[in-house]
């Protein structure tokens, strides 16, 4: 059972964008950071465990340091690497990387902006840390840009471009559980619903592709060799990462899923959708057959809110946070 706790107010409301909430529990302080996108800005808030002592910061989409006109931010996410934590913003103009508190921009990567604007929108979207020293970011043309991140400083370089997707990247996930020896540790998802499974050790290599079935995959997660993917038809699908084999389908939501999250220590899965529900699930593997199993644990409605972001706030999945379109707060829930 989860119970609603004190909300954390945001300076501006959240936009309807996939995976529009990032949560960073600080290691050295009893504080949690939250980030959600509002149009061309990102609202950052830090709060204590009781939801009090809130402080705010707003980040604007910028173009090489200048304020970019009308550039909508598509996602903001913290990337936790062993050596450092960066806050990554994707927008119509490019990719910005900040120190974790949003104070200093350390890197800017511009997207090619065409004039006159093409019918296809241009933007970056989908952010994940990978393999200890990389940050992967997707683009609307289906590319996955791999950035090599030094342990400190601003000497960030574009080290590789993965060209397997034909549609806009929606989300990228790296293994959050145990990495089973050299196996799949990165998944990329696109607008058509296609998934690519990668091994990122040494160099990036494609392991398998999971084909589309007509619905966008808006959010994807990878845990102990299990891919959890959320789709526009409200379905969650579980796949074996190594083979791409379908292991479960869940008719989870009545509307488009916007966010999934996995608690690495317990295998709890969270899904948030436009139907205003957060559902909590538990993944496991049958000790006898090795089959992937999923059970439903909890349902939580945030009334009259089309959820756009939802995340666990701790590695056990004992608490979670969510936000929705037009909502100027982060709603929080804790286990009782």
């Amino acid at each position: 059972m989860y119970r609603r706790e004190r909300s954390v107010p945001l300076k501006s409301s959240s936009s309807a964008l996939y995976n529009n909430l990032s949560v960073l529990p600080l290691r050295d302080k009893p504080l949690t950071y939250f980030a959600a996108v509002h149009g061309s800005a990102v609202s950052l808030a830090s709060a204590a465990a009781d939801g009090l002592s809130v402080s705010h910061r707003q980040l604007q989409a910028t173009e090489g340091g200048r304020a970019a006109s009308a550039s909508i931010v598509t996602q903001a996410s913290w990337c936790v690497l062993p050596s450092r934590v960066l806050l990554v913003l994707t927008s119509q103009k490019g990719i910005q990387m900040y120190e974790s508190d949003g104070s200093i921009m350390v890197y800017w990567h511009a997207l090619d902006v065409l004039e006159p604007p093409p019918a296809q929108a241009v933007f970056a979207r989908g952010i994940a840390a990978a393999s200890g020293r990389f940050i992967c970011v997707g683009t609307s043309s289906g590319l996955v840009l791999v950035f090599d991140i030094p342990s400190k400083g601003t000497n960030i370089t574009l080290s590789e471009v993965l060209e397997e997707h034909r549609d806009s990247i929606t989300d990228i996930a790296s293994e959050v559980g145990e990495n089973l020896g050299g196996a799949a540790d990165l998944v990329t998802a696109d607008d058509s619903g296609a998934l690519c499974v990668w091994r990122s050790k040494e160099e990036f290599s494609l392991l398998t592709k999971i084909s589309a079935f007509g619905w966008t995959c808006s959010s994807v997660k990878l845990w102990n060799g299990v891919i959890a993917a959320g789709y526009g038809n409200g379905q969650i699908r579980l796949y074996e990462a190594s083979s791409g084999a379908l292991r479960a389908t869940v008719s989870a939501h009545a509307r488009w899923i916007y966010a999934l999250d996995l608690a690495p220590l317990t295998g709890k899965l969270l899904s948030g959708a436009e139907d205003s529900y957060v559902q909590i699930w538990k993944l496991s593997r049958s000790p006898d057959t090795g089959d992937i199993e999923i059970e439903h644990c909890h349902s939580e409605c945030v009334p009259d809110t089309q959820l756009c972001g939802a995340r666990f706030c701790d590695p056990e999945g004992n608490s979670f946070a969510a936000t929705g379109y037009d909502l100027s707060e982060i709603v929080r829930y804790g286990q009782v």
Binding site: G234, E240, S243, A245, T249, V250, S251, D275
Partner: peptide, 9 residues
């Protein structure tokens, strides 16, 4: 919504 289906390998 309301149904989970699981498959073997």
């Amino acid at each position: 919504p309301g149904l989970i289906r699981m498959f073997n390998c």
